[in-house]
Amino acid sequence: MRFVVVVFPGSNCDHDAWYATSRNLGHEAQYLWHHDTDLKGSDCVILPGGFSYGDYLRCGAIAKFSPIMAAVKRFAADGGLVFGICNGFQILTECGLLPGVLVRNRGLRFICKDVLLTAATRNSPFTNEIPAGAKMRMPIAHGEGCYTADERTLDELEADDRIAFRYVENPNGSMRDIAGVLSAGRNVLGMMPHPERATEPLVGSTDGLAVFRSLVSACSAAK
């Protein structure tokens, strides 16, 4: 499987995503600079965590105008797998590929700690290998992670089974405990917790591997 990891000025989890997919799972992964416009035949585009463009204006607001994002939007429209983690999730909401927005945490603090979350659906390319009801431990590291949308959008997300992950204990005030959401086509996922930073026993958890394994099995099933 071929992954690409988009590097924006200010990305800081790009190497973790590259490591998780290549060194750890043994797949092909390469970096793409935000000025690139060719996704190099990739099966899955990862928008990594960090502080793209210094979080100027709003988190992810400037990144949506990067040259690469036009290619990512076309890729997503054609059914390509797009995975936004943390700042990547914020970028996906800003550019309209996912509904809602991530606002300042309820308690105002930047939160950096491990949390528990569950997959709210197994019907997606990102969650099909996650055991039902399993509590997964992954880090969060964000100041703006409070998922916010109007009631109608939230009702639609629930009715369409598009909530991918929920927090076991809500750390940031996210509406309906939402930690990750899927696009209508189920091929775009955004999540605030960091599965790519939970793929080695050395760092305390390997629960994030199930997300990447899901992607690999979805990709091989599609071929």
Binding site: R58, A61, G100, T148
Partner: peptide
């Protein structure tokens, strides 16, 4: 389009 996010 840019300066505000109409969602919030």
């Amino acid at each position: 389009e840019v300066l505000s996010n109409p969602v919030i």
